[in-house]
Design a protein around this nucleic acid. Structure first.
Lengths: 195, 195
DNA sequence: GTCTATACGCAGATAGAC
DNA sequence: GTCTATCTGCGTATAGAC
């Protein structure tokens, strides 16, 4: 169960980010010390500062990487034009992408308060860009008459909250496979936007 | 906008809990110091320890109070027997109750990691009791044939995640009134459980 | 119940040798 | 790039006077 062997030794910068991601997700940013990270990485504290300017920058880097990865991945998903098909694609994409990186998801939702105002604003912009992708699908569905939605902004938030919640309970090897979970949620999302 | 005047001076124990609730919600438990709390309350640090044994107990007390209040309130809501009416009642109750205390909701979802294992177990039990109330409504709806649900456990989590998400964006004086939000969400929840 | 004073350790971060 | 050593301040918590 000890996965230290999976971290390539020698690349301290990489080990640092991987270790910080795990520790921040498990204990929270403020509760994890640089000494603790150094201990897990296997170097002395001072050595960490060859790779990051300070602790805040480390947190921001982890969150920014997560958002960039998310935006690139959703763009690469190349969703269909037809609104209902696009919504299905988005739903399945969101579930798979988030279930694959629960630590980064956790941190990105929980540690926003620990960002400097500037760093927060940068990430908030990207978060809104992601949300806008879903909202535009719903608005197109509304316009084309294939979806019946009272308020597209609210429906967007409702769907994202519902889907992201999966990461709080889903574990590989639990009751359902991810494919089953995907089916169940897609059916719920489909109903949510159609009469 | 400074609501210090709303805190009755003289009752340090009460001011302590109210102040801690606000600060923990805004900055996170680990990021708030006892000195900071004392400063806001208007006493010296030592004085706080006349009212709590330690910081951890303070956090637990806030979260435990929130859960007790939630369970009492949902019991007092006296939901109808008929499953769809019960679901509507639950949905409206959950939205109103949570929207009225965003700080406590925030803390209860974000600071679970900072509880001792024993305190965590106690709260988790109460959280499950609350979840079970909704699940039983969905299971009755399934059994009576008025709801069509693939997996009641998952639908329970989906609905709660969706509804609780409201507290992350809803603000009094924003775009919609709470009554409007209630209507929109009830319609979404109703669709989610019916074909 | 609150005050002042303090114990004690750990926090983030840096300096300079190797 | 990493080490050892260290700076400086703040963290939680307690003691004892009033």
């Amino acid at each position: 169960m000890d996965d230290e062997s999976q971290i390539p030794p020698g690349d301290t910068a990489l080990r640092l980010r991987k270790t910080a991601l795990e520790l921040f997700a498990r204990h929270g940013y403020a509760a994890v010390s640089m000494r603790q990270i150094a201990g897990e990485v296997g170097v002395q504290v001072g050595a960490l500062y060859n790779h990051i300017s300070d602790k805040q920058a480390l947190l921001y880097r982890l969150m920014a990487e997560h958002m960039v990865e998310l935006l690139q991945a959703v763009a690469a998903a190349d969703l269909p034009k037809e609104p209902l098909a696009a919504l299905e694609g988005f739903t399945r994409f969101h579930i798979r992408h988030h279930a694959a990186r629960p630590e980064a998801v956790f941190i990105s939702y929980m540690e926003l308060r620990n960002l400097s105002p500037e760093n927060f604003a940068l990430l908030e912009e990207q978060r809104q860009a992601y949300e806008a992708r879903l909202r535009q699908i719903l608005e197109r569905g509304q316009a084309e008459g294939v979806m019946q939605i009272a308020d597209a902004r609210i429906a967007t938030r409702a769907v994202i909250a519902m889907l992201t919640g999966i990461t709080t309970w889903f574990r590989d090897g639990g009751g359902q496979s991810l494919a089953e979970v995907e089916e169940i949620y897609w059916e719920m999302v489909r109903r949510l936007v159609t009469r």
